[in-house]
Write a protein that binds this DNA or RNA. Structure first.
Lengths: 332, 332
DNA sequence: CAAATTTTTGCAACCGGTTGCAATTTGATT
DNA sequence: AATCAAATTGCAACCGGTTGCAAAAATTTG
């Protein structure tokens, strides 16, 4: 069923090397030879075995795409962008789902067994140590949506989560709220921690404003809704900074269901600017995270690192901006 | 950096075959030998190269996971289920994004270059010919969410879309609507066609009920919303069967924005029962598609086909059921 | 037209494993 | 202790390609 180089060589009446060369660009082959070989290959329906060749070239063009965010709709867009971007450059994503898996060791071993050329860790919740495990194993790695650090050990592409927290805080202050709260995702997630600390540090400048915090169990609609329903039982804050849009939308539904209005009674500002945030029945004021840029920059960085494995690690941080829609009251 | 079998053999002072055998289960190795080899392997940090071994065994454990549905949130769940299910069986998903790609030839070539053991086509819109191209290339293939056929050429796992259309029609009839409409996804999608024809065939039994049809440009919120806004300009129907939940939610938002109420003024029934359909501010009456079962059955079928490549093609069709929530008026 | 140079081609070894076969070792049996 | 069967081990060829090197062919130069 499967045609090998040897059969093509026999049919074309040439050596195996000749066939190999016509399918390797940059190799020295005469036009006549190339035509002969291509004809034979055509007739036999030959296409070279990428894995066999990887054995000698040391390159598979496989890229591990590792994530644990399979419940946040924004990651569908992330996967779409990654897969297309990688495909366009002739790279093949080997998808690894890390859900309920915290130890990098297994993933590292598996991806090395498949000789991936590099690994993209696409996660806003995994700690830097996770991606570092790949680097320590000698695999080029880019951590997308990861924690930015002043001295990164691996390439990181993402946003400044602490700055986003401050940005949200400034926005709430500017609107004149006097009692605000942070409603984050899981406390173990680095993005939650950074958004939280940024938010708190900015609010610390305004001691007259009351600040509270709580954390949902996951970055999900249900978790946000559940947490908000709980908060509504006692006296809720005037405005919430939610650690993620999908949380915001859960929070929004909880508030509306309890008969209160947004932004009249309670304000919400989210983070991500997911597609749904634009929906007219949601119309969420949120902080835009430039995921297209993050993904395409991650891919560029990966490709650069493949060509230059010892490249000095860098952090690429993209600015975010507040998208004003309808869930915060106007400034007084 | 990378440790090979040869080095382990040298360190353990044994033959290469011995090392190979300790890492192949079912091979004949004495306990003493195994201990020696494992010790050396441990010390060197060896793990076998899966691709090199695939060369002789003919198995890579790679499975092509091919889809063109990267904009429907339900597919994030589908990818989650597929990746986890495959991983649990030691299979590795090679993700292929087919967005704006209609010709199977490229994907077939690429996946054969990587010697995938099998291909899962996860798409509700691709025609049967697409998955057949893989079979013709000698690759085991399962088409999940594909068009069911009485004489399938490849394995198909999914639902009976025409029956879903009839089911929706019966539901609308039972509620006493006298003017209904189908609002489908792209007309080229097989799932749209089948849902449409099922819906029409059932409605044909009730000539006194007025029926209209239209099609959104994509299975997306925006497309549904846009189409509904257009329909609202003239006289809309009393109830809509939307070809997918994301369409339904777009339609819902268009209706609410125009000042009408659901289900008082206009009824909606969707299809899929995506997570969001349960959200209290949406509360969509819809037809449940059992995606967990579809995915796990697809994986089972894939595994079975790997062990028995000439397995006779079969269609596994799972029943759907109406989930009553709040977007259809009660039966009179 | 011969010599010098450049390009093209094939040989053979190699990439990191697996496996049939024969040789060797082990263990059971008498 | 000798005999025989069963289990274990190593040899060597192979999987489907690539590549350094030298021989052969084509091209340029004098």
């Amino acid at each position: 069923m499967v045609v090998t180089l040897k059969e093509v060589a026999e049919r074309a009446g040439v050596s195996r090397s000749a066939v190999s060369r016509t399918f390797t660009d940059g190799a020295s082959v005469s036009d006549k030879m190339r035509r002969k070989v291509e004809k034979a290959a055509q007739e036999l329906g030959y296409s070279p075995n990428a894995l066999a060749s990887s054995l000698t070239t040391g390159r598979t063009k496989l890229i591990g795409l590792v994530s644990n965010n399979f419940h946040n709709p924004i990651f569908l867009e992330v996967f779409d962008l990654f897969t297309r971007g990688l495909q366009d450059r002739g790279l093949r994503p080997l998808l690894v789902n890390l859900t309920d898996e915290v130890d990098p060791a297994n993933s590292v071993r598996m991806l090395r067994q498949y000789s991936v050329d590099g690994v993209v860790v696409a996660s806003s919740t995994l700690p830097p140590g996770f991606s570092k495990a790949f680097r320590d194993a000698g695999v080029p790695v880019v951590h997308s949506f990861g924690r930015s650090s002043s001295s990164p050990q691996v390439h990181v592409v993402g946003i400044d989560n602490a700055e986003c927290g401050r940005m949200a805080a400034r926005e709430l202050v500017a609107r004149g709220y006097s009692n605000v709260a942070f409603l984050g995702g899981p406390e173990a997630a680095t993005s939650t921690q950074d958004r939280h600390s940024g938010f708190m540090s900015e609010m610390a400048k305004h001691p007259q404003i009351e600040v509270n915090c709580s954390f949902a169990e996951a970055y999900s609609f249900d978790a946000g809704r559940r947490e908000m329903l709980r908060l509504l039982k006692s006296k809720p804050a005037e405005a919430y900074f939610c650690g993620d849009d999908v949380l915001s939308i859960g929070v929004l539904s909880a508030i509306l269901d309890s008969g209160l209005k947004v932004p009249e009674n309670i304000g919400i500002i989210g983070l991500n600017d997911m597609e749904m945030a634009r929906w007219e029945n949601i119309d969420l004021t949120t902080i835009h995270q430039p995921i297209r840029q993050i993904v395409s920059s991650s891919i560029e960085l990966m490709v650069a690192t493949l060509n230059e494995p010892d490249r000095y690690p860098e952090a690429r941080i993209f600015p975010c901006s507040v998208i004003e829609r309808g869930t915060l009251r106007p400034a007084p």
